[in-house]
Design a protein around this nucleic acid. Structure first.
Lengths: 118, 118
DNA sequence: TAATATATTCTATTATGTAGGATAAATAGG
DNA sequence: CCTATTTATCCTACATAATAGAATATATTA
């Protein structure tokens, strides 16, 4: 008998949410380094590139994002970029995560005031 | 030489956010079973009681919440409750997590519409 | 004192998160 | 052409968080 895992692979981790959302922000320009920069720029949170790639690989294995290799741009050398795009399943799961967070925080956390002292 | 861990213990996990926020909602009535029920009631998300307690213990070890034993109430038997309360450090960290999520999602996720089709 | 209700603890295991070095691929300059 | 430089991904190892479900504890009631 296989053990039933109630939430097996159902919920996104906090960092997965961050990466997935950054992917949406970047549209067709989402590749490893850009994702890292976007997260730092918009949230102030420091990450490491290794963490980003590990998460991207896991999300791809779960079928929540897809990837394609980009041609090497002629700027100043450097390896070709690997672009990632969110899949519909990934977007659904992401929205579900935000829905849950919104529901639990309703009445106790005022989102629009978080930057300030509240 | 000790390796520098950039985000060591700095970020809350997704479930930690959920539990911590439920704690705030419940005020002085926050104990294991009530927390589980509150999460299910407000978000629809199923959890297991083991997951709740494991998370509570971790949060307490990190000093983000405190606990006190309640007297056994005279309802219909049963073990005494262990009540949990969020500490100021915990509340700061929780708000920081929400701030980061709010920042990254700004412009791509419309929070107030999440329950609907968007 | 056995059955029942309520609640927490324990034991395992899998999934996520993190760091930092290794490696790869391209260009530019001598 | 061959070496330094730039840009980027991949690899390895380990730490922390999440999850399940059975076991255990404690109180009441009949």
């Amino acid at each position: 008998m296989t053990v039933k895992k109630k939430n097996k692979g159902k919920n996104l981790g906090e960092f997965e949410i961050l990466v997935l959302t950054a992917l949406m922000r970047l549209n067709d320009q989402a590749y490893g380094v850009a994702i890292k920069n976007e997260i730092t720029k918009t949230t102030g949170r420091e990450t490491t590139i290794g963490a980003i790639y590990a998460t991207l690989e896991r999300l791809e294995n779960k079928g929540l994002i897809s990837s394609r290799m980009g041609a090497a741009t002629a700027e100043r050398g450097g390896r070709a970029k690997k672009f990632f795009a969110i899949q519909s399943e990934g977007e659904m799961r992401l929205r579900e995560s935000y829905r849950v967070l919104n529901a639990i925080s309703e009445g106790v956390i005022t989102w629009s005031l978080l930057g300030q002292s509240e």
